[in-house]
């Protein structure tokens, strides 16, 4: 599992793999757009018709929603509720937790169906879990060598001051 107290680093290689999985899911599920978000509300990747939605807001609200739902689950003695579905008049949102660590959001309309989305999400989740296992393994391998994964190791006070000038 990703350590919640370290920096989460996503390299190009894994970013491409993740993008490929959600691109395929988009086609297979006939969805409008797909977002992959970490549990802290950071957007990891997205695909499809994403221009019409404020992705940053979507990410933080989804993470808040998952956090609140997770709290509810614990209250009644469940580990988590892995899937949520919100039905709208035109568009629907399918939210699922992948490998206990990231959140997969699929937005779809009448051109798809809940059954199809659920089916395709299940398959994509397995692939994504493998990719995030690899990311975790990479992170663990770099423990003790923080500078290697950290582009900020070399920043100076001046660099930081310049941000505020």
């Amino acid at each position: 599992m990703l350590n919640t107290q370290t920096t989460f680093v996503l390299y190009d290689e894994e970013a491409e793999k993740v993008k490929e999985v959600i691109d395929n899911l988009l086609k297979a599920s006939n969805a409008k757009s797909i977002y992959l978000i970490d549990k802290n509300g950071q957007m990891i990747a997205s695909t499809g018709n994403v221009a019409e939605i404020d992705a940053t807001s979507l990410a933080s609200l989804t993470a808040g929603n998952i956090a609140a739902t997770g709290g509810l689950a614990k209250l009644i003695g469940e580990k988590e509720f892995a899937i949520q579905f919100h039905e709208g008049e035109k568009d629907n949102i399918h939210i699922s937790i992948v490998g206990s660590r990231v959140i997969l959001v699929v937005i779809f309309d009448q051109r798809s169906s809940l059954g199809l989305v659920r089916l395709r999400v299940k398959k994509a989740s397995n692939t994504l879990t493998t990719i995030f296992d690899e990311i975790s393994a990479k992170e663990n391998a770099q423990d003790g060598m923080p500078g290697r994964a950290n582009p900020f190791a070399e920043i100076t006070d001046d660099d930081i001051d310049n941000l505020f000038s």
Binding site: V9, L10, D12, A15, G41, Q42
Partner: peptide, 15 residues
């Protein structure tokens, strides 16, 4: 947990 994304060259921090 900060998030460094090499693909989009971004770093995200939560305050």
């Amino acid at each position: 947990m900060s998030f460094i994304n090499y693909a989009s060259r971004e770093i995200n921090c939560k305050i």
